[in-house]
Design a protein around this nucleic acid. Structure first.
Lengths: 340, 340
DNA sequence: TTGAAAGCGCTACCAC
DNA sequence: GTGGTAGCGCTTTCAA
């Protein structure tokens, strides 16, 4: 069923039917009701491509996530973020188009998305400290919002992030309070902004007590299960092994715990482990407030906020936003000059 | 830059330029080269909406994933599957549109995708034993492929799955070989087909040795971290607690391990744990062949296969497919009658 | 308050 | 081998 047919059924012009359905004020309310009812009955939906062609909008938002050649797995955190964003898009009648591209094809992917007119805006995932994509998106005139921040970017851009620095500061402080002296950091790739911030939080907490981070206790790498496993084994084989671990991702944490178990060490007695995106920290704290971590739930919330902001940027009406728990962990900002 | 401009620059008609770019044979090769070069130079990309409107194709595949109201997190396995599929789409010039819908809105979502003409085909995720969506998609004439299977579906449909039953059969058999008598199954929701199959594999391995599964040792639920945590605590508080756990998801496994750790039990001595989608099983087995599990890597492979098959179904040319490890874990099929 | 018609950017048919 | 043009389904002037 298309507009032509529908309007013929109704004995009206396409113009009137279109106007009725799109809420234009000049349509007689009686007519509008008739049209709406018929549209409902026939299950009429405007063809997205035709509508897009006529309006110049695609009613879609792109999410581009990179997939390095060395490590093809997708960080589960993207799933949570995207789930939050998707909910908002659905409510607003937007589609989400997901591009999964090799890092070397990334610039090309953005240009194509723009030239093809496939999306009205983009969410940029996984920013590095130096983030060339920000300049690129600006130069091609594609509205965008960054999931995370780019520390070395001096220009102006919108972002939504979880508070990585504070989370790692608090987690480290907690371990220090427990009496740990040798704390290991099993971090993500520190060229990535989030990992960089986590490290800063870690170091700041140590500095607060007059301590200096020991490079021998810090690992950085793609956050796979295998990486967690081998990191722990390396770290524990050292002369002065750590007594606690701060782990950047629940996937690595699987490997971390496995390695610890295999050595017959007992958590909480021989060794402490805190994982960044770990929903159990709620459970142990009465179920409402996060202790140290930016959990999966707060990432989902970040996705919602990001979607709302981007839709606003491209001129969509306000979406009512329900404030939930965890908001405190979330940061929303507009950066001019180096990211805060 | 659009076709009109480009053709004017070249002093050719839109027709010729279009034909040159789309590989039609009747174009002079010299002309074609000129056109290609100019298109390259100006960064010309045909507008996707206009092209779609003219051809009736959207050059996009939809992935619909449901998001139950109780449990908003996205299973990381979707990310891996989607990453594999996305790679294929990109190569073939297809976009992926991702719909995240509440279960009760699902039928509506499919109808809309069809009516709007947003996608040329759909990947159906997370099928239940009784899967009404299969009938729905057939009735609205939307090409689709199922990621998984629907045991109670008697009609004909294409699917790609990992071998859940065999994986759980082998894992159970292994635990029995180790001498375990009381093995717990921490499974997903058994209305879901994958969980149903996993349970069947579990029970079949027991039956093979003349044993019967003890209902008191089986748990079923949404695979969250908290679920794993509470399940283990419940199970271990019983009079005759299990000595081994078979866990359906690495997310639940995080909770499972945490609970075990907290009780001061030692893995491998007091208790054994096998997790379904656990990439470390490679590491321990020389890095090439999966022991028991359908790992994240094989799920990624499944995504590739699914994309290829669906594209074929909607009449796209063959994609060269590189056979990799793990293929043995993968099942590809066309079901007529109850799923095998 | 309604309708006719142009036009969004492309493909594909038909003529040359 | 190349070009003119109708038409995909919608929105949006402009006219009535």
């Amino acid at each position: 069923m298309n507009l032509k047919e529908l309007s013929r059924q109704l004995g009206l012009s396409q113009t009137t039917v279109s106007r009725a359905l799109n809420g234009y004020p000049e349509v007689n309310e009686t007519t509008r009701d008739r049209v709406r009812q018929a549209a409902d009955q026939f299950g009429y939906r405007p063809n997205a491509r035709a509508k897009g062609l006529a309006t110049g909008q695609s009613m879609a938002i792109g999410h581009v996530i990179t997939n390095s050649t060395s490590h093809e797995m997708v960080n589960p955190i993207f799933g949570d973020f995207i789930s939050g964003a998707g909910e908002i898009y659905a409510k607003q009648g937007y589609d989400m188009v997901l591009s999964i591209v090799r890092d070397r094809d990334e610039e090309q992917a953005y240009r194509e998305l723009k030239a093809k007119g496939a999306v009205d805006g983009i969410i940029l995932h996984g920013p590095c400290n130096d983030e060339p994509r920000i300049g690129l998106l600006k130069s091609i005139g594609m509205p965008f919002l960054v999931h995370g921040r780019a520390s070395n970017e001096t220009g102006d851009y919108a972002w939504v992030d979880v508070n990585n620095r504070q989370a790692f500061f608090r987690a480290t402080a907690f371990l220090l309070d427990l009496g740990h002296k040798r704390i290991a950091l099993v971090n993500g790739l520190e060229a990535m902004d989030f990992a960089h911030r986590r490290r800063e939080g870690f170091e700041a907490a140590l500095a607060d007590r007059g301590l200096v981070a020991d490079p021998a206790l810090m690992r950085t790498g793609e956050m796979t299960e295998v990486y967690g496993y081998t990191s722990v084994n390396d770290l524990l084989d050292q002369d002065a092994p750590p007594t606690a671990f701060l782990v950047s991702s629940m996937i690595s944490a699987l490997g971390v715990r496995r390695a610890i178990e295999e050595r017959g060490l007992k958590m909480g007695r021989d060794i402490s482990v805190i994982t960044h995106d770990d929903d159990l920290s709620y459970l142990r704290n009465g179920g409402d407030v996060p202790i140290f971590t930016a959990t999966r739930s707060s990432v989902r919330l970040a996705g919602q906020r990001a979607a709302i902001r981007l839709l606003k940027m491209i001129g969509r009406p306000d979406v009512p936003f329900k404030h939930e728990l965890l908001e405190a962990e979330l940061m929303v900002g507009q950066s001019t000059g180096p990211a805060p």
